[in-house]
C-alpha cells in the first residue's frame, strides 16, 4: 500500500482548478451580493426593513410563495401517479415511459414556454379548439395571469417530481404490499396505510426539490405571466437591469439564497441528495 499522505495531496490538487473557478467566479461574487444587501444604498438593515413597510415587496413575496406552493402540490400528485405507474409497469413499458419523461426533461424551457404561448393565447390552439367544438363562446384568458404561469410551471416541474418518488418506490421492499394483502387489507387500505407512508421520504424530497426550483423560476413567470404576475426572480432582474436598485435586489437574492439552502438542508434529512441530483439526469 502506498502511504496515505501523498495520495491525499494528489487528490486535492485535482480538485483545485474547479474549486478556483467556483470560488473566484461564483461564491466570491455571491458573498459580495450578500454584503451589498446590508450596505447599499447605506449601511444597515434598511433593505430588509422594507419587507415590512413596502406593499409591492410583500405582494411579490406572497405571489411567489402562493404560486410555488400550488405548483408543488399539483406537480407532486401528478409525479406520484407517473412514478407509481412506472414501478408497476412491465420492463419494456417502463423504458418507454422513462424515455418520454427524459425527453421532456431535456427540451429547452424556452422552447416549451414558446409552445405554451402558441397554445394558450387568445387565438391559441386551445381556445380555438374549444370554440370550434362549442364548449366556450369567449376565449378563456389562459395567459398574463396566474393560471398560465401555473400551467407552464407544473409542466416543467413534473419530471423533477417523478425522479425522487421513483427512487423511493424502487428502494421499497415489494413484499410488504403482499404481506399487507395476505393479512386481509384491501388494495385501498394497503395503499394508504402501507405504501404511501413508506414512500413518504421520496414525496417530501420531491416536494422540496420542486419548491426550491420554483422559488427562483424566471423564464415561465416572465413570459406566461406577461408582466401581470411578478415573482421574485423577475423582480430581481428588473431591479438590477432597469431601476439599478442593487440593495433591494441583493436583499431579495439573500432571502432566496438562504431559503433555498435551508430547504436543501431539510431535504438532505429525508433523502441522500446525491440520489436526487445524481438520479435527476440518469
Amino acid at each position: 500500500m502506498t502511504p496515505a499522505r501523498p495520495r491525499l495531496n494528489a487528490g486535492w490538487l485535482l480538485v483545485l482548478p474547479l474549486l478556483a473557478l467556483v470560488v473566484a467566479l461564483f461564491l466570491g461574487p455571491i458573498v459580495n451580493i450578500l454584503w451589498l444587501s446590508v450596505t447599499d444604498p447605506e449601511p444597515g438593515l434598511g433593505n430588509y426593513a422594507a419587507l415590512f413597510t413596502s406593499d409591492s415587496l410583500g405582494k411579490i413575496l406572497w405571489t411567489t410563495l402562493r404560486i410555488c406552493v400550488i405548483c408543488t402540490v399539483i406537480s407532486v400528485i401528478l409525479g406520484y401517479s407517473i412514478a407509481y405507474a412506472m414501478v408497476h409497469a412491465a420492463e419494456s413499458d417502463r423504458k418507454r415511459m422513462l424515455s418520454l419523461l427524459l425527453v421532456s426533461f431535456w427540451i429547452s424551457v424556452l422552447v416549451r414556454t414558446f409552445s405554451w404561448l402558441m397554445l394558450l393565447g387568445r387565438n391559441g390552439l386551445v381556445n380555438n379548439g374549444l370554440e370550434a367544438i362549442g364548449v366556450i363562446s369567449q376565449p378563456i384568458a389562459f395567459m398574463r395571469n396566474e393560471l398560465g404561469v401555473l400551467i407552464g410551471m407544473v409542466h416543467y416541474m413534473v419530471p423533477y417530481a417523478v425522479l425522487p418518488i421513483l427512487a423511493s418506490m424502487q428502494a421499497m421492499d415489494g413484499r410488504v404490499v403482499s404481506a399487507s394483502r395476505s393479512l386481509g387489507a384491501t388494495g385501498a387500505q394497503t395503499f394508504w396505510r402501507v405504501y404511501l407512508p413508506l414512500t413518504r421520504p421520496g414525496v417530501v424530497a420531491a416536494a422540496l426539490l420542486v419548491f426550491i426550483i420554483n422559488l427562483g423560476f424566471y423564464v415561465v413567470p416572465a413570459v406566461l405571466g406577461g408582466g401581470k404576475v411578478l415573482m421574485v426572480a423577475e423582480y430581481i432582474s428588473v431591479q438590477v437591469l432597469i431601476t439599478l436598485r442593487w440593495g433591494t435586489a441583493a436583499m431579495l437574492a439573500a432571502l432566496l439564497l438562504f431559503g433555498v439552502l435551508a430547504l436543501l438542508f431539510l431535504m438532505s434529512r429525508f433523502m441522500k441528495l446525491s440520489t436526487v441530483f445524481g438520479g435527476a439526469r440518469t
Binding site: 480538485v15 474547479l18 474549486l19 467556483v22 467566479l25 461564483f26 461564491l27 466570491g28 461574487p29 455571491i30 459580495n32 451580493i33 451589498l36 426550491i212 426550483i213 422559488l215 427562483g216 423560476f217 424566471y218 421574485v232 426572480a233 430581481i236 432582474s237 438590477v240 435586489a249 441583493a250 437574492a253 432566496l256 439564497l257 433555498v260 436543501l264 441528495l273 441530483f277
Partner: peptide
C-alpha cells in the same frame, strides 16, 4: 457539496453574481 452549489442556487442569483463581477 460546495462544488455542486452552482447547480442548486437559483440561476437568477448566479446571473447577479456574474454580472456584478
Amino acid at each position: 457539496a460546495v462544488l455542486l452549489l452552482p447547480l442548486v442556487i437559483p440561476p437568477i442569483i448566479a446571473a447577479m453574481a456574474f454580472y456584478r463581477l
